[in-house]
Design a binder for these strands. Sequence first.
DNA 1: GCGACAG
DNA 2: ATCTTGTCGC
Length: 236
Amino acid sequence: MPTGSSSLPASLPASAFEGWDGSTAQARELQLALARRVCLEDDFVPLRRVAGVDVGFEEGGTITRAAALLLDAESLQVLASRLVRQPTSMPYVPGLLSFRELPAVLEALRGLPELPDLIFSDGHGIAHPRRLGIAAHLGVVTGLPTIGVAKTILTGVHAELGEERGARVDLCERRTGEVIGSVLRSKTRVRPLIVSPGHRVSLASAPELVMRFVTRYRLPEPTRLADRLASRRDEA
DNA sequence: GCGACAG
DNA sequence: ATCTTGTCGC
């Protein structure tokens, strides 16, 4: 079987949650099982192509719009972009975001001419109650390296953060003190980003990679562009 | 039992 | 996320 040729979007899994019965209870169990497969070791080189994915909604939330863009890691030039629309399957439930958004995201990724070496996803990676935010979920089911870039905290606490661009502090699990991500000031005097590894990226590398793709805006280019496309403040 | 709660 | 205009600040 074609097990070695894994550079085609067609190799992406058909489903992000095999055998899910639709219940929120089983969804949480599935998250615990998938979280055990998360890899926090750096394994994303060579980094030639990166992707940004995000989701938006239309028609009062009945239609889900997922955007995926492929950029050259060196020039940040957009090589390809894909926008897919699907009927929304379930409401937003804190902690279960991936069950609502991943189907559309996977479909958008399938439309890219090639798979990326790293994916920047909106939302959290392991900075999640069960360590499986949408970025981690996406990474585990696709096998691709991923990083979660969120605008607000879902869970965790942190020390005060410096005001200058580049300032960073650990995001920790309140009870155990376990480090689950970083609070990162991507721009001076701007609300910080919450960055956490999704899959095949370490806690230390995640914020460095994000800064590497930040230009003049708060969000790193892959997610900023995907955000614009998915939220239709754009065209296509 | 009472909050908190990515997008 | 989305509904929404102008406005203050770097």
